[in-house]
Amino acid sequence: MADASQGSAPKPSSSVKLVLLGEAAVGKSSLVMRFVNNDFQENKEPTIGAAFLTQKCPLPTRTIKFEIWDTAGQERFASLAPMYYRNASAALVVYDITKPSSLTKAQHWVAELQRQASPGIVIALVGNKLDLATPSTSPEGADEAAEDENDDDEADARKVPTKTAKAYADEDGLLFFETSAKTGENVAEVFTAIANAIPETQLKGTRGSAAARAQEESRVNLSAGRDTMGAKEGCAC
């Protein structure tokens, strides 16, 4: 699917098929909604099967068009997942920093992707609902704070220390972020990082006449991308 893309886009662009996986209610759909519409809904219906959305990210030299497959999180939907991560060149594996079990599930997903998905798939591990952690602590300092649960009135709901998840991500060579779909913190950064991490060879252009141009585009050095993409606005159309 990485090579398939839309036929209607006027601008030359590279399509990237991205799939979101993770336990139910960790905020996959909310992340996508934040990324695509810069919006957040308190009560989001669970995803049935999967939802499909697209979002373009204009880079200085080209546009990346994310074709996002947002999947259902409940365990029993797992057998449908291969249908969605088929040909994906990137994956967001999401867990909820207030739910340790969701990290275990995320690890299972990573293992599955590494074995079953396209080789070279770029995987980002994303701990969502960062807004529920004690806001004052920096990601680094949060580790210790999380260790001793939430005895303070500050009520830190964080249950997964950053350190733990980070260590795991490093070990498996994953991108790692902690985000909040609610506040928008770090959301665009995740997608930007993925856009930059995708090997050029994975980037294919659009179909038809645009294809050739896009192929050209995709060969352009992307090193500048990260900074430009930093701002949310850069992505939200």
């Binding site: 699917m1 398939a4 893309s5 839309q6 036929g7 209607s8 499909f52 697209t54 074709e67 179909r207």
Partner: peptide, 10 residues
């Protein structure tokens, strides 16, 4: 028949 990918189809 004019749609050529999942996105357009959907």
């Amino acid at each position: 028949l004019d749609a050529h990918d999942d996105g357009a189809f959907i």
